[in-house]
Computed example of a mutant assay.
Amino acid sequence: MTDVELGSLDEIPVGEGRTFAVDGTQIAVFRLRDGSLRALDAVCPHRGGPLADGLADERVVVCPLHGHTFDLCSGTEANGAELSVRSYPVTEVDGTVRISR
């Protein structure tokens, strides 16, 4: 695995997600209310919805277009649909967000 620096933690407000581009892949990083970070592919496989714009809690994010719900740790669709997105290990080091690919 390779670590990739995405940007500043300050770019992601608490309770929200932001999309970062990495080698042609869109990755959504969520800064949860408890301060922890989660990272998933940023595009919903159903119809291309922007997952970083979805509502997220400590467990899931809901696609803003059609309501598909993805587990923030595993990327699996939480309601049993045969959809999933890739999840990424994500950390913050000295104020910088990093993922492992």
Results as ranks from 00 to 15, higher is better:
45 P>G: 07
69 T>P: 01
53 D>H: 10
86 R>W: 13
11 E>V: 05
30 F>K: 04
18 R>T: 12
49 G>P: 00
60 V>A: 09
63 C>T: 05
68 H>S: 14
72 L>S: 02
64 P>D: 05
59 R>V: 09
98 R>M: 13
33 R>Q: 07
69 T>E: 13
35 G>I: 02
12 I>R: 02
53 D>E: 12
100 S>P: 08
16 E>R: 13
18 R>L: 12
70 F>H: 03
67 G>Y: 10
77 E>N: 05
99 I>T: 03
39 A>W: 00
4 V>D: 03
95 G>L: 07
52 A>H: 11
32 L>Y: 00
46 H>W: 07
43 V>S: 09
22 V>N: 01
18 R>G: 07
31 R>D: 04
69 T>L: 09
74 S>H: 04
56 A>V: 09
21 A>Q: 12
57 D>W: 05
81 A>Y: 15
70 F>Y: 14
27 I>C: 07
38 R>D: 01
71 D>Y: 06
22 V>C: 09
65 L>T: 11
58 E>K: 05
96 T>R: 15
76 T>Q: 14
49 G>D: 04
8 S>M: 06
55 L>Y: 09
39 A>R: 01
88 Y>E: 05
39 A>G: 07
10 D>R: 15
92 E>D: 12
16 E>I: 01
25 T>N: 15
69 T>V: 15
61 V>P: 00
